[in-house]
Simulated scan of single mutants.
Amino acid sequence: MSGKKVILITGSDLADVALRMLEDYEPVFTGRQPTEAQLIALCQQHNPVAILVRYGKITASVMDAAPGLKVISKHGSGIDVIDVEAAAARGVMVRAAAGANAAAVSEHTWALILACAKSVIPLDRRLRAGHWDKATHKSLELEGRTLGLIGLGAIGSRVAKIACAFGMKVLAYDPYANTVPPECERVDELKDILMHADVLSLHCPLTQQNKGMINASTLAYCKPGAILVNTARGGLIDDAALAAALRAGTLRWAALDSFSSEPLSTPHVWEEIDNVILSPHVGGVSDASYVKMGTGAAANILQVLQTSSQTETTH
């Protein structure tokens, strides 16, 4: 080891420019999908001053294994994998690279919406099997339809702007948003947005209050034939209830980029459901966002460590 203080990176790589930002520290990579036991062992071995979180969960036990820990910085915007209350109790700062992947996630959201509305996957499969469905197929035209957004942060706001280019009406439900973009009409009750949305897209963080918010009761409010897209967090949806709605045809399509348990293992509930599109939580990962998330996470670490150092010096 170099003698430098350690920054633990829960992954196997980081953008080169972000690594150069952290050159005064020793980076230690955990590898992909580290377990709690592995994280604890590495913390006990290296006592990192910072943890840069790409994969895995940072629990109270992990924090306790690193008494010198000052900051936990997320490589992205979602901090639900970090025990924020435990960090606060231990005086450990938690930071996120807010907005760094907004363009990537909003683009992926629209890729999924369009794939559902235009039946991209089933048409491809049938054509490869020798069928020519031109005379019988009708896709869903988005112009004049209603997009319902749950969550109106950096990502939801970008999705709203793109919807306007398609000529869609945009309804937004976000009780925590102080302002609403001019493209959106605010809705105060969740059931109201479910009742009117032809396409429903989730863009809110996962909390104890909204866990399982899309369930049998709320799905009952949805318009028949609606499309549901989730590029936020899997825990927002009750999988069994969504699967039942898709099988019954209550929903036309769903597209999921995140899951309550990751990585998605087999067997799983979606294997036998044809009207769902799956992607492995890659919405926020693009060539550009990889760099932006890395540099954002690194900048957050440096800011906290610099402030901590100055405070210690004055005392």
Rank of each mutant, 00 (worst) to 15 (best):
I58A: 09
D83N: 11
A220Y: 01
D274W: 01
Y25I: 07
I273E: 01
G212C: 11
L14W: 03
E189V: 08
E107D: 14
R247K: 15
M1P: 13
I301Y: 00
I227L: 12
S289E: 09
D124T: 11
A160L: 06
V53D: 00
Y176Q: 07
R32C: 04
C116A: 15
G153Y: 02
T250C: 01
P122C: 09
D13Q: 13
R125G: 05
S217T: 06
A100P: 03
H196W: 03
I301F: 03
K118C: 07
A172T: 02
L256I: 12
R145C: 08
A244S: 10
A172V: 05
N210F: 09
D133T: 08
A241F: 02
L202T: 11
A177I: 10
Q208W: 04
I227N: 07
T10H: 11
S61V: 00
G156F: 00
D239I: 02
M1W: 06
L142S: 04
E36F: 05
R128I: 07
Q209D: 14
G167Q: 13
L302K: 06
R186K: 15
T231H: 08
A41N: 04
D13N: 12
L149D: 02
G130R: 13
I227M: 11
A245H: 00
V276C: 04
T207H: 13
P267C: 09
A60N: 02
W110I: 01
A288W: 06
L242C: 05
L39D: 04
